[in-house]
Design a protein around this nucleic acid. Sequence first.
DNA 1: GTCTATAAGTGGATAGAC
DNA 2: GTCTATCCACTTATAGAC
Lengths: 197, 197
Amino acid sequence: MYNMSETDTRSRLLWAAKELIWEYGVAATSPGMLLRRSGAGQGSLYHFFDGKAGWAREAIVAVAAELTAEADETLAGEPAGLPAIERYLQRPRNALLGCRLGRLAFDPDVIADDQLRAPIAGYFAHLRRLLAGAVRDAVRQGELPASTDARALAEALCAVVQGAYVTGRASDDAAAMRRATKAMRALLHAAGAGVGR
Amino acid sequence: MYNMSETDTRSRLLWAAKELIWEYGVAATSPGMLLRRSGAGQGSLYHFFDGKAGWAREAIVAVAAELTAEADETLAGEPAGLPAIERYLQRPRNALLGCRLGRLAFDPDVIADDQLRAPIAGYFAHLRRLLAGAVRDAVRQGELPASTDARALAEALCAVVQGAYVTGRASDDAAAMRRATKAMRALLHAAGAGVGR
DNA sequence: GTCTATAAGTGGATAGAC
DNA sequence: GTCTATCCACTTATAGAC
């Protein structure tokens, strides 16, 4: 039987770290903010984690696991190919909150510490692999031209979502995400319309 | 005749602010860093600028003007339409450095101060207008389908570039930009191939 | 495990001499 | 205009009692 109270305080700290990093990034999240939001005391923080890099890394790793599971769910399901790509583009997203991992790409603390950047890189690598697979399925099913560069298109699909987070937040316009992904779907359909002729 | 030494010190401070904000964002750039890089003294900083929000805003406004001029040059030139869009996508960019304005979208200081966010929003609004104009030209010239939603496609074109900065930096992979924009060009050509039949 | 006390360093800004 | 001295708040972390 494990110690329940330990698990609780540690979990609360990690939950608060995930929330705060989403809202403010790593560099702008301070130990004080973490203690206030979690309700834990300073002693607990340094008991459970090895400094700021410690809890930041654990939070990022946990979020990466969550987003990876979501991506698997969306893209590995049926039907495969173009419908899977459409499911990815049409996922509900709040452009103003930002991608929980993508918004960290230019965080000074993340740039300076490869231990923090690596889980983020891993998530995007996985996402691009899934998207490239969906593109190849689409080509196989005649939904996209045979000349399609799957790796490049996967990068563009990933980028258009991440970019809409950026322009949406910069312009304080949550509709940017819907517009950008709608245009992407239209392009894919128009490109696919010419196949087989 | 204006005071040359004043102009010099002020210019050096502003130049340093633009550089540092590009490298670290606003929140992570401190007065101390600014003084070290510019070589100016503390007194000069507070003589010429009204606190951090002051020099940060001036730097952002200046960068927005520079990027706006670049966009005008690229997109307003000849030939118009799809070639203009291609020129935009193929501009030389360093994905690892990031967009000088887009990288600020999730900066805590920028999010918290509309005076800092407004020039960034203005730049992106201008860029989207230019891109939407190029898309309409392309439709008129038969390079894209008549059904094309110019505003949405402009958003997607803007987003794919901004997103490639994000995934490129996160994955420490400067080639992400070339891949994403290449896929976008291929999609545009494939979509345009079906026009007029 | 959790608490309070503490400390060295930095961030952002002001004061006042020159 | 530019300088140095100074200030308060906060960040990150450690010490040591309970």
